[in-house]
Write a protein that binds this DNA or RNA. Structure first.
Lengths: 224, 224
DNA sequence: CCAAAAGTGTTCAATCTACACCCATGC
DNA sequence: GCATGGGTGTAGATTGAACACTTTTGG
């Protein structure tokens, strides 16, 4: 987000009671990480916080969340879902309610918006610093929901490239759940879920037997 | 809600961007019914709508929802849960976002707030009139969530009196799901869920064998 | 030839589904 | 004595969990 629009939002703030916050998650070598921005100005100057801000005129909640996501990461068309609406902390100025979203992005496609003074950075979800605005409860909630959705949805489609192997997919699941999974059972369950399909091509990289490539049948959230 | 506080909220309206709406459901002879109020004044004069309104100063979202529920029905301490946050319809005045809740109440305990000009009334969920503020999507969502939660939670505790028979409980499940359930399977599943326990007493009313009475182990939402 | 990752089936336990009859009571 | 609703068990199918070895490739 630019400094201009930030200022515009601050003026808007006293007349608008609702804000969005986005829990942007990705999987890297360190495991599951969350994108945080560093606050330079009060309130909570010096703290880290979730990307977020006020609704702009004429904008829907989903659009505001997508705008925040795009502004911080440069990505669109990823898994983005409303999580829950939290009360603001009693003593915080500004909005009364925070509509939280969570998004999953492929770390490889993200270009962090270093242009702003916000210094966005990835933190492992279990080693995040203390957060502004009581945002920690939002991250905890996102994590819980994500883990629950792994079992019956295609949430992770935006954490992987267009084509991928079952082993890559399994690594993502393991990173999110924080525990190893049995290979054969994983393959059976995933295939019976019907969210992915073979491309018919093979991956021929690496010092091993070529691997069948898959893709997600639908690259959009499936709701049940 | 009184006319005074309604007027106070209308003034508050232009400075506050968030409202709550409550889908209050109960089970009656006709099946699952939803509480609606009749709008006398614009916007949507003459339409039926969900009980709702703006957040009052210093109040949390949950408190606002509970206040609305108490104001319309006189009940508290029932199942009340946040559902989802919806965008207001683009052309509607007032709040930008509607935080929807759903509540389940025992029709026997409710005293409808006939004092106001709002004429609250129960409508079968599948035969409700056209609703103001695009509220129909909220009712549909509540219904879907309620049915999903039946299988693994104690949601229905506030639809039944303190003591009840398994058959009464089954009637409630059938009314919500809209289909008959097998008696033996229902009893096995419910008992294995561990949300109810026998009281040790018997119901001796009716021209039939006395029935064992049960109660819910916890009369508060269980979160999983 | 060796390291690295891909691929593949079976057994057992637990859970879910379908299904029918006898019993205690009030009238 | 009969109508009403209460109470109970089993067999078959499905689902989920545990578990180990062979294959192909690049270096």
């Amino acid at each position: 987000m630019t400094q201009q629009s930030d200022r515009a939002q601050r003026q808007h703030l006293s007349t608008c009671g609702v804000a969005v916050a986005v829990v942007i998650l990705t999987v890297q070598r360190e495991g599951l990480t969350v994108l945080l921005i560093h606050r330079a100005a009060p309130p909570y100057a010096g703290y880290w916080a979730l990307p977020g801000g006020l609704l702009m005129p004429g904008e829907t909640l989903d659009q505001a969340a997508a705008r925040k996501l795009l502004g911080e990461t440069g990505v669109a068309d990823v898994y983005l879902e409303q999580l829950y609406t939290f009360d603001a902390q009693p003593d915080d100025p500004g909005p009364r309610a925070i509509v939280a979203y969570f998004a999953l992005v492929d770390a490889g496609r993200v270009v962090l918006a270093q242009r702003s003074s916000w210094q966005p950075a990835w933190f492992p979800v279990d080693r995040a610093p203390e957060l502004a605005f009581g945002n920690a409860r939002i991250v905890a909630y996102a994590l819980k929901r994500l883990r629950a959705k792994l079992g019956y949805s295609n949430v992770v489609y935006s954490l992987l490239p267009e084509h991928f192997t079952l082993t890559q997919l399994q690594r993502v699941y393991e990173a999110i759940l924080g525990r190893p999974l049995d290979k054969r059972n994983f393959r059976k369950r995933i295939l019976s879920l019907g969210i992915i399909e073979p491309t018919g091509h093979l991956e021929r990289t690496g010092a091993h037997r070529p691997a069948r490539l898959y893709r997600f049948s639908r690259r959009e959230p499936i709701t049940f």
